[in-house]
Amino acid sequence: MHMTADAREVSTSASGATATRDIYLPSERKIISGGGTPHVVAKDFSIYYGEFEAVKKVNADILSKYVTAIIGPSGCGKSTYLRAINRMNDLIPSCHTTGALLFDGEDIYGKFTDEVLLRKKIGMVFQKPNPFPKSIFDNIAYGPRLHGINDKKQLSEIVERSLRKAALWDEVSDRLDKNALGLSGGQQQRLCVARTLAVEPEILLLDEPTSALDPKATAKIEDLIQELRGSYTIMIVTHNMQQASRVSDYTMFFYEGVLVEYAPTAQLFTNPKDRMTEDYITGRFS
């Protein structure tokens, strides 16, 4: 196992029911009180595509209500790891896992786990904005409707609340009945965030949410992450190290399927413990 002492420290110290360890936060951010509850816990967790081990024996706690960024070069397994958390990898027939991945103490890959219920609690926003070819309203209301809310008034409330949370309400409130595919890429991505928020998840998984967006739209998404921070447990996979350092509280660095380093963001970027991490964040390889 190739893992730094620090990452192990986080993992072990946070696995207690309510760890109260001081958490490093950049000075410009508000301190989140009562944080440090592990939300997703990986124990010797590996993911295979057929014979190929894409993610190797990860041990890590993702802390509740914090933003955790996952960085690493292409093909390092960071997306695979993220998608394992709400079992999106189930779509790939050859994919299987070993070890344990716990969500609120329950095994995500347990025999009796209802993956539909799980995905309701662990929402995901994808690399490319993927609104449905329906109206903006129907896009947001899709999730709530699935879960049995059909009352028009209640749906309208949810739609407005979700769009406001995603900072999109002001831009689209007058054209909720228009097709969502008519929105700009950045708006579409925020719509996808709003759509995910509408089912009131506990965890928000963001898989390179800005890679298809221009800098302005990217800034808006980053602002949005700041807004949502503290209300949701957020995990974001990103190629952009500046982005990771801007938006996250914790950063995980993956290399060739191994979780190399997992530390508070500022620490990882200013004082990495591992040579590999240092090489990566200083741009010696990518």
């Binding site: 709400n86 999106m88 779509l91 539909v116 219920l117 995905r119 309701k120 609690k121 929402g123 995901m124 994808f126 993927n130 609104p131 449905f132 899709y142 999730g143 699935l146 879960h147 996808c192 759509r195 995910t196 089912v199």
Partner: peptide, 9 residues
């Protein structure tokens, strides 16, 4: 499909 499944469908 991914979007729909990820919303708990």
């Amino acid at each position: 499909k991914e979007a729909s499944l990820s919303l708990g469908s």
